[in-house]
Design a protein around this nucleic acid. Structure first.
Lengths: 337, 337
DNA sequence: CTGAAAGCGCTTACAG
DNA sequence: CTGAAAGCGCTTACAG
């Protein structure tokens, strides 16, 4: 086996307590000379701390757990980047587990495994937890927070306000003169979906426009949902603008629209929700209602670090509209207006 | 604190040894009745295993560590997916640490932290290790493997053969009739870069074409490198085809080419190296020399699981050309031919 | 089939 | 400033 503090203690002619102190920086009790000697010895002997032992005795660890829905979201990355960035500042490690959003069993296992370690906190990304998984989580006494998905159940989260997202995106297009506005690719049964629809409806009503259920297309925020949506709308869509509920949905719509012979934006304006880097990479670039995913990661991590376990903290993060090239004001040129 | 096996033992009127056995499935020694009783009790009392204690006593753990270069590669995801997929099958957890490729200090720390846990193995993604970091790693006695970057130093890896990549991509374009072929956006000082250049050169020479150093553009495989490359080639490029050393480079080149008024592929053919999903999403879709990143993750994980610590195993994974819409045979239409 | 006991490597009051 | 000792929660020969 490896070198232990016992080995070092023997060589240094001190007790293991002294070695432990010297090596973990609790130096107010040790003489500088001893410390130097021990540290040199540790290095020379190739000592490596046994984290398991430390965790066992201190009953805490320096790791943060992230549970991601296996459903590929292309915004998980900026969130995880934010988490890593903040975790690194505080000398914390990050464990990442995948849990299928639609696999309650795997979800449960993922949480269970995490809980069996004394992690400092748990970040749940884009995850819609089953009742039993949530119970397990909340009974663990480990602080946790949901990222990117809000709720109305007094469960801590950091997310965008999806009601506002629906509302602002719709208003933006209305402001461009559009009246026939679709809402595409969202999971209409999810909390997010319902909130966005509510905001969409509100904006329509305020502007005396009618919500047409057939202009809301159900989906799971995927590229294929975008393609399907546009195939369904067809080459002579009554709609002149669409709110895509993810960048991928927006891209699918744009690509399919072009395939159908439509021009984006003059025939069809698109605004996508999310605003990941993909929007800048494709042509035309996609106007987006941008969420600050990186910030979600940072704030979520900060919350867990400073968490006192009893404060149920939830926060909406501001979104902003980034104008790019996939939308334009409604003109005579639009197919139907 | 939480419930321990001691608490369960007391309630069940058995020894902690029995509880330990019953709970960890070493049941060949226990009576079924006792086992059932203990398991029921554990559940009822909300028992959760203390992983730190288990790791300490068994001197092993169920975690696999992944160290990723912080430099954003868009192929890290399929690799990590592959790792998770395989790890899940074997009931293993995955820790992910970021380490800057150009930050030796952070790299070193990342490895050190990982080594202080008794992880089952270490996967290094797209990482070019400094000498001291590598020393630390190799002295740890923990099995490790490099993914996506090969070497000629007897260090285990799973990667594509970059020499062949350069060779095949060049030959493919030559087969399309191109003679003025650029190689763009690669780190010419890296092992990967050198290998690709060597393959490129070889293909050119075999076809009696001259390698022009000014047609190789240096970079770090980024989108901006693609933009820059194309700005440098200008609107009347002598070259008629380019090998982009990543999908992002290829996309940058394509977008910039279009901005310059060139048509892709008739004015400029592009083949990109990597073949991530991005190639399917953009217009025109990008013909690619596709690497099987997912497979790298799976094979790397398998290797670590079955590893006997002494076998230095390295493997090249097959690549394939996926024809899409960003290239075409050289014709009179090409600006210069 | 089950229990007593040793021990994994470390930290931390406590005593000096 | 330093050491002896207890203990973190578990596993596993060993003995019965």
């Amino acid at each position: 086996m490896g070198v232990t503090i016992k080995d070092i203690a023997k060589r240094a002619n001190v007790s293991i307590a002294t070695v432990s102190r010297a090596l973990s920086g609790k130096n107010k009790f040790n003489s500088e000379k001893t410390i130097k000697k021990i540290q040199a010895l540790a290095k020379e002997m190739g000592y490596r701390k046994n984290t398991a032992a430390v965790e066992l005795v201190t009953r805490s660890s320096k790791v943060l757990a992230v549970i991601v829905s296996a459903t590929k979201t292309n915004f998980a990355n900026p969130i995880i980047d934010g988490i890593h960035e903040e975790a690194y500042k505080h000398d914390l490690n990050v464990i990442i587990s995948y849990a299928g959003e639609k696999e309650p069993q795997r979800q449960y296992e993922a949480i269970k495994t995490i809980i069996e370690r004394s992690v400092k906190g748990i970040l749940l990304l884009a995850l819609d937890l089953s009742e039993s998984s949530y119970k397990l989580l909340s009974e663990s006494e480990i602080p946790y927070i949901f990222l990117s998905i809000s709720n109305n159940r007094n469960i801590p989260f950091i997310a965008s306000n999806d009601y506002l997202i629906g509302y602002q995106a719709t208003n933006y297009l209305i402001g461009q003169g559009h009246k026939n506005i679709a809402l595409a690719g969202l999971d209409t049964n999810s909390y997010i979906g319902k909130q966005r629809i509510a905001g969409y409806r509100k904006a329509l009503i305020e502007n005396k426009l009618v919500l047409r259920p057939e202009w809301i297309t159900n989906g799971l925020f995927t590229y294929d949902d975008g393609l399907k949506t546009m195939k369904y709308f067809g080459k002579n869509p009554k709609i002149t603008a669409v709110i895509a509920c993810s960048d991928l949905v927006g891209l699918g719509i744009a690509n399919q629209a072009v395939s159908l012979g439509l021009h984006v934006p003059t025939d069809l304006s698109i605004i996508t929700i999310d605003g990941t880097n993909l929007c800048n990479l494709v042509r035309p670039t996609l106007t987006s209602l941008t969420q600050d995913f990186h910030q979600m990661g940072i704030l979520g991590t900060k919350y867990l670090i400073g968490n006192d376990k009893n404060t149920h903290y939830s926060k909406f993060i501001d979104v902003k509209i980034e104008k790019r090239k996939s939308d334009c004001p409604l003109t005579r040129n639009n197919k139907l207006s």
